[in-house]
């Protein structure tokens, strides 16, 4: 991207470095490629859509997912339909970075992800990265994309070290966990712990839902058991779509699949209530106990080990790697 002079980085508060994700960019991009934005999300998305039609390659960042709701018309009516409406004569490739908040009192209007909503718009590509290779993949896809791309970046996925492996794969897993974004970090942690007690659980980290069903399918054929995790509500979530497609494909489950997501209600800003609202490690342990009761003892041991490791820590931060407060 550094060699492409048509790239432009648009951001409200560009000098604030967008959660330490921009300083590197400001070293490789020229000052004329960095654009401060007025607080006008709808016009900004319209601008990048129109500019991309004529050869500008915009990256645009909003501090929270919820701010993009103000630009919904531009995304649905224009950005996603440029190619269709112009009979293929024009395209609008841009990268929209939206941040999902969590912790430090983010509350009901700064912690939503709405991934089913973005996925329901034909013409948009949506990614939900968890680790650095997921982020690299998003940028690689953007370089060759002719569609707008939305990347939903959970705040608790920023700052994860490059070496941290996300996702686990076993030849004969007991259970398959479908997850994405921060849930993948959580599930990987639980899975690594379980492995120490002899329980092999596949964690299928799915930044790109369009290819997730195939990967999950392969794992579920081996395990016969599925936990499907959503960042937002289970109601009408990606997990619902995943399970529907697996059932349509005739997958036979050894036990009924389990979904883990938030209740269908707004999130509290209170740390303890927020911890219970969003999917957490204990939800996962509970689900696994139900699915593989013959390994209950091992799961209980792993659960106790996890609880021990958490003692004395704040419940509204994900770990030492996170540079907050929000």
């Amino acid at each position: 991207m550094d060699s492409d002079p048509s790239v432009r980085l648009f951001c409200e508060g560009i000098k604030d470095s967008f959660y330490q994700t921009i300083p590197l960019a400001s070293e490789i991009l020229r000052p004329t490629q960095l654009e401060e934005l007025p607080i006008s999300e709808a016009a900004a998305i319209g601008l990048v859509t129109g500019a991309a039609m004529f050869g500008i390659r915009p990256i645009i960042c909003f501090q929270r997912v919820e701010f993009a709701l103000l630009a919904m018309d531009q995304l649905v009516t224009n950005a996603s339909k440029t190619k269709y409406l112009s009979g293929g004569k024009l395209t609008s490739p841009f990268l929209l970075r939206l941040v999902i908040g969590r912790g430090w009192g983010q509350g009901p209007c700064h912690s939503q992800s709405f991934e089913p909503l973005w996925h329901s718009i034909p013409g948009l590509r949506v990614y939900m990265p968890a680790c650095s290779s997921d982020y690299t993949d998003v940028f690689n896809k953007f370089e060759v994309s002719d569609s707008p791309i939305i990347t939903l970046e959970h705040r608790w996925t920023h700052g994860i070290s490059v070496e941290t492996s996300i996702g686990c794969k076993y030849s004969a897993p007991e259970v398959t966990i479908f997850c994405y974004s921060y849930n993948s970090i959580l599930a990987s942690r639980v899975s690594r712990l379980l492995a120490q007690y002899g329980v092999d659980v596949d964690v299928v980290n799915s930044s790109d839902f369009s290819s997730a069903v195939e990967t999950v399918r392969e794992s579920v054929i081996a395990s016969g058991r599925l936990v499907a995790m959503d960042l937002g509500p289970s109601f009408l979530g990606l997990s619902s779509e995943l399970i529907a497609q697996l059932v349509e494909q005739g997958i036979v489950f050894k036990a009924m699949p389990v979904r883990i997501g938030t209740p269908f209600e707004p999130a509290s800003a209170c740390p303890e209530k927020a911890y219970v609202h969003f999917p957490n490690a204990f939800d996962l342990f509970d689900a696994l106990e139900g699915l593989i009761p013959h390994l209950r003892e091992q799961i209980m041991d792993a659960r106790a080990a996890f609880q021990n490791a958490c003692k004395g820590q704040h419940s509204d931060v994900p770990g030492d790697y996170f540079r907050g407060p929000f």
Binding site: G50, A51, M53, F54, Q74
Partner: peptide, 17 residues
Amino acid sequence: GSSIPLAVGAAYAAKHL
């Protein structure tokens, strides 16, 4: 009103290209 900011984008492209 939906097409108005698209025109702003085309103007941005004209200026920068």
